[in-house]
Design a protein around this nucleic acid. Structure first.
Lengths: 169, 169
DNA sequence: CTCCGTTGGTTGAAATGTCAAATAGAGGGT
DNA sequence: ACCCTCTATTTGACATTTCAACCAACGGAG
């Protein structure tokens, strides 16, 4: 094999930092959200996506793309949420194969209750730790990587960036 | 509840970007590594840590801290790797309770075989997509967040940054 | 209209990760 | 030595994710 270009000190620092950041942050945010609202990050994301639409319903496959998860994973996820009454499935009128996930009242209520705490958590652990320039830099940097990543053979997921935003109220 | 400070447009962009980046990148890197070498990211990390020491052995609890995973998770992980012959467990001489994970020959060989491809993958998908300044910025930004994150009630994991580096050969 | 190769979605089993015990040795009194 | 508590690690049950079928409906070609 051709001897690869190993990482420089700066690159190493960035890579290790990235890895650490991701693990700790994911853990912390998930934990905060869980104990404050009983929702997982995955639950939250589905609720946000649904609440963001006018009719509060999205086709399963579209939802999977938005959330960047496999169809299978989403299907299981929605089943669990359905069992808890947070969402409901309906048959798709236009396409006999399809089904749409619909946000229920309790689901919306759960999101409204969870949002402030979650935003606060994201702020405390991530955003407020950075300067305005760093926040800006993170945004641009992420977009650069995503552009290329979504271009080539997008894996189980698809295009589009991600979200996780509060209720639009 | 006190109306929280919602995210500004810039913050939102950074946060969404971060989320997307993490999902896609993790997926892509894991997939590359898996098909090139048959190792998961978790496998790779354990191998790297062990290979980084002079004696190629680390106490389980220390390894868990380095890798920032819970002891339970590490225990399961090591068991799986042990079954594949990548590592081996030994009783700890100094402490009757403890056990140490030891890198085996095949384990080392697997790492040596996987490293070039993995570094290349990290480069192609992440580092080479960024300017030198962005790489530098990512490193600093991650450290800023980690400093604070490891300070407060560190969750299942502990202190320290993470790695994932090639064999030191 | 029928055939057939996609597409949308689900399902079940296997792999992985989490959480709460359970086990066992260390260590400090008494 | 004996007891109590704390630490290191494993274990098993359970939740979540992945992977590979599977099923049914779409939609174009013949």
């Amino acid at each position: 094999m051709p001897e690869p270009r190993w990482l420089t000190a700066e690159e190493m620092r960035a890579w290790r930092g990235y890895l650490g950041l991701v693990r700790l942050l994911e853990d912390r945010l998930g934990r905060d959200l869980q104990e404050q609202s009983g929702l997982s990050m995955a639950d939250y994301e589905v609720l946000v996506r649904l609440s963001d639409t006018a009719t509060r319903r999205i086709r399963m496959s579209e939802l999977a793309q938005l959330a960047m998860v496999s169809k299978s994973r989403l299907s299981h996820q929605v089943s669990r949420m359905e069992a808890r009454g947070l969402v409901r499935r309906e048959a798709c009128p236009e396409d006999g194969r399809g089904s749409v996930a619909v946000l229920t009242g309790p689901g919306y209520a759960a999101l409204v209750a969870a949002a402030p705490g979650h935003v606060d958590s994201v702020r405390r652990h991530l955003l407020d730790q950075l300067t305005a320039e760093q926040v800006c830099s993170l945004g641009r940097l992420a977009e650069a990587v995503l552009d290329q990543l979504t271009g080539e053979g997008a894996a189980p997921c698809a295009a589009e960036a991600d979200a996780l935003q509060p209720v639009d109220e």
